[in-house]
């Protein structure tokens, strides 16, 4: 079956190829085969629309060559944050250990 595709031309992913050090970590961690490397290991974006903005590439790039507004594409979470319920757990309990109430509220998910 063909891979499922989400909306076109919305993704914030960008690559500064001048910073690339050819380590290949970005293409290794990308779960959507967005990034490929050429014969010498130089990264390039082969399928930007497939990017889900998980941020794995930028997190694992030792030189910060990637920029992406990483987040999770989850409508329920967006609604929660719009309603100011960022503390509403949608996928699990919130860490309470040693945190103040304020910190709890700001904790993600």
């Amino acid at each position: 079956m063909e891979r499922m595709a989400y909306l076109k031309d919305v993704v914030t992913l960008d690559l500064n190829e001048e910073k690339c050090v050819d380590c290949g970590m970005c293409s290794e961690v990308c779960p959507q085969a967005v990034i490929a490397v050429n014969a010498i290991g130089r990264a390039w974006i082969q399928d930007r629309d497939a990017c889900m903005e998980c941020g794995a590439c930028s997190r694992n790039c030792p030189t910060g060559a990637f920029s992406v507004e990483a987040g999770v594409g989850c409508a329920a979470a967006v609604i929660n944050s719009m309603l100011g319920r960022s503390d509403a757990p949608c996928c699990g309990p919130i860490e309470s250990c040693g945190q103040t109430v304020d910190q709890k509220k700001s904790s993600c998910c």
Binding site: R3, V10, C51, E69, G71, G73, A75, A76, V78
Partner: peptide
């Protein structure tokens, strides 16, 4: 169905915001 974006494996935050 829109809420299923959170369970899916290929939706981006930018896309979900645009859709919403």
């Amino acid at each position: 169905a829109m809420n299923f974006t959170g369970a899916s494996t290929y939706t981006s935050l930018s896309g979900v915001k645009k859709e919403m």
